[in-house]
Simulated scan of single mutants.
Amino acid sequence: MVRLPLTPADVERGARLGALLRRARGARSMLEIALAAEISPETLRKIESGRVATPAFPTIAAVAAVLDLSLDAVWAEISQPEPARTSRQRMAS
């Protein structure tokens, strides 16, 4: 099976997913959440860091359930594009 390269939008969406999961996890440990979701802590670490930008749906569903996030809320947050930056903001980065 050939895996297509990720688009910049895929990478951005993966970063937003990771940030959402980190915020929802709060002070709870990565190990606690991963074990409850029945995934490896390394998988959760990769998703939260954006290294896995397109995790499998069952993985997202399991983590969202443990964090008490609805899949609708997850999709609504990660599918929103970042606000457009002005050329001055891009030059400052």
Rank of each mutant, 00 (worst) to 15 (best):
G14Y: 11
R28T: 06
R13N: 02
I33A: 04
T43F: 09
S79G: 10
I39V: 15
V52K: 13
L69I: 07
E32K: 04
A24G: 03
A37G: 09
G14R: 07
A84E: 14
E32S: 13
S49V: 10
P83I: 05
L31T: 13
S49G: 13
V66Q: 11
L44M: 09
A64S: 15
V63F: 02
E12D: 15
E82H: 01
P8H: 10
P41D: 07
T43Y: 05
L6P: 05
P41E: 04
L20W: 06
R51E: 13
I60Y: 07
A9T: 13
F57R: 03
L69E: 08
P81F: 00
L67Y: 12
A76R: 09
V66N: 02
V74C: 06
D10P: 11
A65P: 07
R90V: 00
M30S: 02
A84T: 06
M91H: 01
E32G: 03
E77L: 04
A19L: 09
R13F: 07
A64P: 13
V2K: 14
S40D: 15
L31I: 11
R28L: 10
P8L: 05
G14Q: 07
E48S: 04
E77W: 10
A84R: 06
G18K: 09
R16Q: 13
A56H: 13
I33K: 04
A27P: 06
T54I: 02
M91E: 05
A9W: 00
A19T: 09
Q80D: 10
L71K: 01
E38R: 12
E32N: 04
A65S: 14
Q89G: 06
L71M: 15
P5Y: 01
R28N: 05
